[in-house]
């Protein structure tokens, strides 16, 4: 199935990927070819088949609500590209 340029840009926005203008066409071509190949799944009539969401038949895996050691605030921030005053720092939202 072919995928239009608008579809590519829409999906890229959903996926938070900023495709540089000059590369959109290349991405469109690759996605189109892969979608054509994987579209093969629609050849089968599976209206009566249940979807498989998980390989094991596990139902309601409960656990006791127990406290356990976790990361300190310092450890949680240790890998942050930018941190300030015990928080992650980011640029303006919707600026």
């Amino acid at each position: 199935m072919a995928i239009g340029k608008d579809d590519v840009l829409h999906v890229a926005e959903l996926a938070r990927l900023e495709i540089p203008e000059g590369e959109v066409e290349g991405v469109q071509g690759q996605l189109g070819a892969i979608l054509e190949a994987v579209g093969k799944v629609s050849e089968l009539d599976l209206s009566d088949v249940e979807p498989m969401t998980h390989p094991l038949d596990l139902v309601n895996v409960w656990a006791e609500d127990e406290t356990a050691p976790s990361l300190t605030q310092e450890e949680a921030l240790a890998n942050a590209p930018d941190a300030h005053d015990g928080s992650f720092r980011v640029p303006a939202v919707g600026g």
């Binding site: 994987v38 579209g39 799944v41 629609s42 089968l44 599976l46 088949v49 249940e50 979807p51 498989m52 969401t53």
Partner: peptide, 11 residues
């Protein structure tokens, strides 16, 4: 796509 693929997985 995704829904159909999950059914194929059952098959």
């Amino acid at each position: 796509y995704y829904g159909q693929a999950q059914k194929v997985r059952t098959v």
